[in-house]
Design a protein around this nucleic acid. Structure first.
Lengths: 331, 331
DNA sequence: CTGAAAGCGCTTACAG
DNA sequence: CTGAAAGCGCTTACAG
């Protein structure tokens, strides 16, 4: 057993050709006789030669690597998105470096620096507001970026997302069309300009268009995650016990609302209807199974990868739908 | 705006020093006057110079990158594990390339090849059986590997995992100690020699030690995921309607059992007790909240990273515990 | 069909 | 305190 990995030079020597010829063979380029091919191939196999991608990357200035920035990695939304990204990247022979920003500015800046040094060929930035600072750092990297499930109003960065306002509108209408007139909302982060406010606006607009009073007191706020959803649902039900349906701005918060209902002996959907948002696997696993706004999450990931690799700056609004399960009752 | 990124040569020229000096400054090594430091630092800042990690990696033969192989990326178990890995890697200034093997031999082999070419410094292989083929490929890579939530009986590869047999034993005993005598198990993949059979054995042993008949018909099989858990629970209840408690070999399957109970109008825990395994966030989100065997999942990820970076081959058996929630009734 | 040589952007002895 | 030079493992014109 040799102690160090053989290089292209070793196989060149071993098969009595130049490194240029070995390189051509390894890369499937033309320019050698069948006899040479056989000899070199045999040597490669015999020696267990593996090309060094970092050396190749240095000369070609390509690393076949992208960086993926996520505010969290443990939510179903994040992991399904990551799954889509990873799969599509792999299809194109790219690797994905995972970066959990933790919604932390310092971490994000650090990651951006590392990714820049590692010469990633593209960046996918997800579910978070793109600050001026981040934009400037990325701008300096001279690397294409696509936004997923977020967007920027200040910078012309391509994105792939669902129309939050429209989807929330549809979810709320789904409730009103089924006879609900007392509807509350468990919203995500109030200050989130992308997944926060627009979903609230869609909700309010739907109420108004249905001739219902659209009162901001019908909205309580969480952070898109389970615990916060449970709390926000308690707050909502305390404030408006007359509510017969709640629209949650994420599946996790909807499941939190389910827990709250369960705590209080409220049956879903008999006593309280709940509609979620995302249609992650959480919606399938809950009791009762959750009716939810469906986003094509994994596909959004793969679309983002393709946009990056095709250097497209054509943003995409993805279609949503409503997946009906058993958490909404028609009154 | 320059069209291409400045190199160390550019900043050397710009600040009238050699690249060696710039290199020293960039890397915080000694050997330059305060005046030189100031001049070079200014040039770096002014030009927006970022060191090229791939060039550096080529000479130092270090990439500060590890590869993480997972059989799936969307389960809570996988994402919490990945979260722990990613966080610890980042603490040590390492990046993680995520590889979803999809439990597919070809994909796994491809990933191993890519990771080898990209010169990752270590591999984390999780939750899957290490075949001879994989072992040989990794062996050829000359790169350290650590196994998480799995192990190899044939090869001396360090691992970090919980003792499956013992944990299952404890879970089952938890049920018998609470008066249950009719206990079924929803197992994971029967053929899985790590998380499959050992958990079954722990279950059976606990039954026997409790003076209960330990009949293999009390066990139905799934694949650790939700749908399969639902089905396996149906099968179990059809076969043994007298069962008062079920031990599921994963939280997802336990939640599947909850769904099955719900479908059939069985209340949990009044009519049927359920105990899960993993204690992922799924256990917190279910109705009722799930009592489950707790594995320190994220910590297992960070321990694995440390083992890799410290080049330790000292395997670790991590402690488990039982997190009590509301899915088990004392008879 | 094949090889010599330059060069990718760094780091690292070595010499002064 | 500083620089010239070699070298990491490849690819890519260029020449033959």
């Amino acid at each position: 057993m040799s102690t160090k990995a053989p290089t292209i030079k070793d196989v060149a020597r071993e098969s009595s050709v130049s490194v240029a010829t070995v390189s051509r063979i390894v890369n499937g380029q033309p320019g050698y006789s069948a006899e040479t091919l056989a000899r070199v191939t045999a040597a490669i196999r015999r020696m267990g030669y593996t090309p060094n991608a970092v050396a190749r990357g240095l000369v070609q200035k390509r690393t076949h690597t992208i960086g993926v920035l996520l505010p969290t990695v443990t939510s179903k939304f994040a992991s399904q998105l990551l799954g889509g990204i990873e799969a599509e990247a792999h299809n194109h022979d790219y690797s994905a470096i995972i970066c959990n920003t933790d919604r932390n500015g310092r971490r994000t800046a650090e990651y951006l620096r590392v990714l820049s040094e590692k010469q990633v060929e593209g960046l996918i930035f997800t579910s978070e507001f793109l600050t001026d600072e981040y934009e400037h750092l990325v701008e300096a990297m001279k690397v294409p970026m696509v936004l997923v499930s977020t967007m920027s109003r200040r910078y012309p960065i391509p994105y792939v997302r669902v129309d939050d306002r429209q989807a929330s509108y549809a979810a709320t209408r789904y409730l009103t069309e089924r006879g609900h007139t007392q509807i509350g909302m468990v919203s995500g982060t109030a200050s989130d300009p992308i997944a926060g406010r627009p979903r609230v606006e869609g909700f309010l607009q739907a109420l108004a268009d249905s001739g219902l009073s659209s009162d901001e007191s019908l909205i309580t706020y969480g952070d898109f995650h389970f615990d916060s959803g449970r709390k926000a649902a308690r707050e909502l039900l305390d404030r408006h016990p007359e509510v017969t349906a709640v629209f949650a701005a994420s599946d996790e918060m909807a499941v939190g609302a389910l827990s709250t209902a369960w705590e209080r002996g409220l049956r879903v959907p008999e006593d309280l209807s709940v509609i979620g948002y995302d249609d992650t696997q959480d919606a399938q696993m809950s009791i009762p199974p959750l009716t939810a706004v469906h986003q094509p999450i994994a596909e959004m990931g793969s679309v983002a990868v393709r946009m990056l690799l095709e250097n497209s700056n054509q943003s995409r609004i993805m279609p949503f739908s409503i997946t009906e399960r058993h958490s909404v009752k028609t009154l």
